[in-house]
């Protein structure tokens, strides 16, 4: 018996929701980035599952490949920015940056 597509989609949904909750509740900048990675992976699970089960076909796999690469690029920049923030503020707490208000 083949695993139904919905199971995979549920895994993707769990990843996505965990990522969203992680982004919403964590204050540590790097923890928020981890949430982003989870969200992107949720989408990737969807894409690969669709590639296997739907007429989307290989397109889904190729999209997920590009997503992996783009996520790496984004993580690199986000980390550089986070480190820069840390150098200026001696903390990585996103809420601790309070110069910009209004």
């Amino acid at each position: 018996m083949e695993t139904p597509l919905a199971y995979y989609l549920f895994v993707g949904a769990v990843l996505f929701v965990s990522g969203i909750v992680c982004m919403a509740t964590k204050r540590n900048g790097i923890a928020v980035l981890m949430g982003v990675e989870l969200v992107l992976n949720g989408a990737n699970v969807n894409f690969v599952a669709f590639a296997h089960y739907t007429p989307l076909g290989l397109d889904g796999q190729i999209v997920s490949l590009f997503v992996i690469v783009l996520a790496a690029a984004e993580a690199a920049v986000a980390l550089a920015i986070a480190l820069n923030f840390y150098n200026n503020h001696q903390t990585i707490d996103v809420d601790r940056g309070d110069k910009l208000r209004g």
Binding site: G29, I30, L33, M34, E37, N41, N44, V48, A51, H52, Q61, S64, L65, I68, V69, A71, A72, A75, A76, L79, A82, L83, Y86, I92
Partner: peptide, 27 residues
């Protein structure tokens, strides 16, 4: 999707996450 899976391991787990852990350590 073996190619995607291998890329996931190589780029994501072996690269991006290592970078993230670096960030954790440095901050």
């Amino acid at each position: 999707a073996d190619f995607v899976g291998a890329t996931q391991l190589l780029v994501y787990v072996g690269g991006t996450l290592v970078l993230l852990i670096f960030g954790v350590m440095l901050t």
